[in-house]
Write a protein that binds this DNA or RNA. Structure first.
Lengths: 144, 144
DNA sequence: TATTGTTATACTCTATAACTATA
DNA sequence: TATAGTTATAGAGTATAACAATA
């Protein structure tokens, strides 16, 4: 029976290996050719839906005053739109556009193509075993 | 038999999940309370040994002129030292100190503690299965 | 002539305090 | 009085071109 320490260490190693050999989200977002903070805002909106500026700032640890130029640039680029809340006229909500989705879709495709290239170096048997283990991990992680 | 597309997609999902639920190296380095570029230089030196300034700059995609203030700060903090190459007097080599090792060691401990906390929510059976799958993945990844 | 590291400088991103408008 | 978003502004990080020392 592996002890918890050992498993923890292996999971730590797995993360480092995956991030080195496949991709890490930080390097990935840099490939969008927009500042990292802008990319994080788009990523947040795509995964969480429209949100007030203060909420985005709080969740992403970006200071509220800096949100103004960030949103300005994203509006300029056609990646988000501003609209007032119906319930509180102080609140401005931000919503991502189809344009933003397209940006991330193409990034996802590039990444997956690169992963696929690397997986091809495994034999069929190895790949099958790899796939089963992958499914087990994904299921366990859902329970955490 | 799972197709390659499917496996690729699952690996992509695994990376995103792990980075969200456990840690991602970028967020991790931010916890060092030094700028990300400084942390990356230290990480590079610890994993690759002493190196000339231009080489570090090239590998980490940092412009050479910006290396000067970065190294200055790291020297100030006692994390690295400069020394001249014996073979080429133009070259200044950078070496990390024990101080830098300590910084990363404590970061690693904090991270592993947090991972361990999360793994504790799994049942013994789940944990055992998790551990086996983890080992399989680590082995396959070595072959990629 | 080419390369290493530096200086000078302008630009962008970031952090803090103070402001307005709404509640 | 408290909150949302903005403005103003200073500071830190980054990118480009030009420089001195060495090869």
């Amino acid at each position: 029976m592996d002890c918890l320490d050992n498993i923890t260490n292996n999971l730590y190693l797995l993360l480092l290996s995956l991030n080195r050999r496949f991709f890490n989200p930080h390097e990935l977002l840099k490939n969008l050719n927009i500042p990292l903070s802008h990319a994080k805002v788009l990523f947040y909106l795509i995964h969480n839906g429209p949100a007030p500026i203060s909420k985005i700032a709080e969740k992403l640890c970006i200071s509220r005053p800096n949100m103004t130029p960030i949103i300005d640039k994203l509006v300029e680029g056609g990646y988000v739109v501003r609209f007032y809340s119906e319930y509180d006229r102080r609140v401005i909500l931000i919503k991502h556009t189809e344009n933003a989705c397209g940006l991330f879709k193409s990034l996802e495709k590039t990444t997956k193509d690169s992963i696929e290239e690397k997986l091809k170096t495994l034999s069929d048997d190895e790949l099958q075993e790899f796939s089963q283990s992958l499914n087990t991990l994904l299921n366990s992680i859902k329970n955490i």
